[in-house]
Amino acid sequence: MSGVTRKIALGACLTALALALSWAESLIPLTLFIPIPGFRLGLANIVTLFALYFLGRRSAWSVLTARCLLGALLAGNLTALIFSFSGGAVAMAVMTLLYRNRRLSVYGVSIAGAAGHNVGQIAAALLVLGGWAPLAYLPPLLALSVLTGALTGSVSAALFRFAPAERLFSPV
């Protein structure tokens, strides 16, 4: 399989996986314990991280975009797209900046990504809903992102060990 075809095929698989994880985590009623609307574990980020580390920036962005569009299509509403993409894009931007940094491991990148995701979503909420109410959720979400980021980071780290070492940090 040529490199490009391999990337496309992998990208498609990863998109499907990300969608499945997204749906699966929505089944867990986290909001019962932590009553913040829209609070999630962010398991789909594991896929994004994998794409970033092993396939490069472009593939990672493609997988993210595809996942957001399909997710919104499946959910059947436009606001879902705005919220998931705004969160995902900021997370991706942050992670893209940090992932090659030797001083940070996948844990740190994941935490930064989680924080970025929440910031992006709150920004979208401010725009879509109007008013300043969404800002009230920023402090707890930021604090929680350290936890969820660490969680997805540790799952990612465990999974990455199974991937071929030489594929890590493949060129853009």
Binding site: L104, S105, G108, I111, A112, A150, L168
Partner: peptide, 30 residues
Amino acid sequence: MKSPAGSALRPTRWDVVLAAAILLAAAVTG
């Protein structure tokens, strides 16, 4: 390419710094 073990897959000191910075941001905004 670099070997993954040790570099990107184990938590580093700077990870903790980053986490602390985010927590600080949470406290400040709070």
